[in-house]
Design a protein around this nucleic acid. Sequence first.
RNA 1: UCCUCCUUAGCUCAGUUGGUUAGAGCAUCUGACUGUUAAUCAGAGGGUCGCUAGUUCAAGUCUAGCAGGGGGAGCCA
Length: 465
Amino acid sequence: MEHITRTKVSDLLQSKDFGKEVLIKGWVRTRRGNKQVSFIAVNDGSVIHNIQVVAEVEKFNEELLRQVTTGSCIAVNGILVESPAQGQPVEIQAKEIALYGTADPETYPLQKKGHSLEFLREIAHLRPRTNTFGAILRIRHAMAFGIHKYFNDHGFYYLHTPVITGSDAEGAGALFRVSTLDAQNPPLKEDGTIDYSQDFFGKETKLTVSGQLEAELGALALSQVYTFSPTFRAENSNTPRHLAEFWMIEPEMAFCDINDNMDLAEDMLKFLMIYALEKCHEDLLFLQKMYDNELIERLEFVINNKFVRATYTEAVEILMKSGQSFEFPVNWGIDLQAEHEKYLVEKHFKKPVILTDYPKEIKAFYMKQNDDGKTVRAMDVLFPKIGEVIGGSQREENYKRLLQRTQEMHMPEKDIWWYLETRKFGTAPHSGFGLGFERLILFVTGMANIRDVIPFPRTPKNAEF
RNA sequence: UCCUCCUUAGCUCAGUUGGUUAGAGCAUCUGACUGUUAAUCAGAGGGUCGCUAGUUCAAGUCUAGCAGGGGGAGCCA
């Protein structure tokens, strides 16, 4: 059996080496047939399609064939032939079948027929074996690889930012505490509060919500860096667009203003859509057929249209003149709600939109203030269907103005003295943004729930697997 | 966290005004079929109706609480 090397199913399906002896290994999707012949569909995850193994029943041990059931794992040695039947270009005439692992058909939860996505979430340990999750996971890989490729090709350095942080500097939401103290009986200070000076790091530490502040430190030395890292939010968010643990991509560029920043965001997103269409065409076709019949059209739409750029103030005017009745009334100064963003993207502009120059009160302390004294150089990229996919800004590089904003927003200086020092020592104009990786994957796969685009989702009340 | 809907067989779902022994399709098992494609055909097995309490002669069905899940909203990426 092991005298030749294994070939991946993806390679065999394209092969024209008829008559050649091959070895495949994979998981059985279905077996059907009659007393004379068995057809075994085998998938090894290399491609969405299965390879059909044809076994003449009389040549094999009856007990062995009986155990080749949906979900079992086998190796097959045989001859690659052109398939005489419709449905597949090639198939394997089996000479030898080895069984690596059986799967009791009475208890194996995956059927050959479709399952609901909700049910598959309950068996996340097995759902990678479905066509849907095979496709999603291959696309997810391609997008991760594409992101590294894009930044590498554009002269960015991949900067590894810490996952454990001692500051809540970005203020992006509730944090998970990281501690080795005895939760039953923590050391207390005289005032009854927990004494974190006795904790592992000698201070209270959390899981990061963003690598941005550290990415800025990198940009102010290497000019162009990016992070691609897990981030954590302890918000009790129960929506199809939020995870407690998700991956974020954060480029940060010195000598770069808000317009350069927008150009980069648009160019990178378009590159990734093109990359997906090129590298994952069959998986996208499958997802389009099963879940979202406008998927490829939507990806091409993003590629072929220039993103609309408008200021927050212009957007507010459009919304006020729209005649729409919104649940949240519109006036200058409000944070735009999902319904407002949806109207702008899907009804008014009908294109991806980048909004800029938001009121400083609703944006983070580090964003560069405009000369009007009211707005900051923020930018949000809004996509159809999923809303905000990117949030970014030009950063405040002026030490005094940044310090003033940290004080106004009650940022503890002791936590971010190092960040402020970059503005004291060789400061430079710089910009960056954050891209939620799973939101990107939602858009590229056409999936509706973010729990279905990450292998093992972490959400409130759910850390199984 | 708020609003709303859902929870019945392994899966997807029916189940009438509360009323005898809770149904279907698929899956599984058995059998038939000389090349199948979500194969087809025949038969069989499979259920503490999410949990707890209550109303009632009687609860899958009505009420309350709890748990889990979906959709919408907020927080955001």
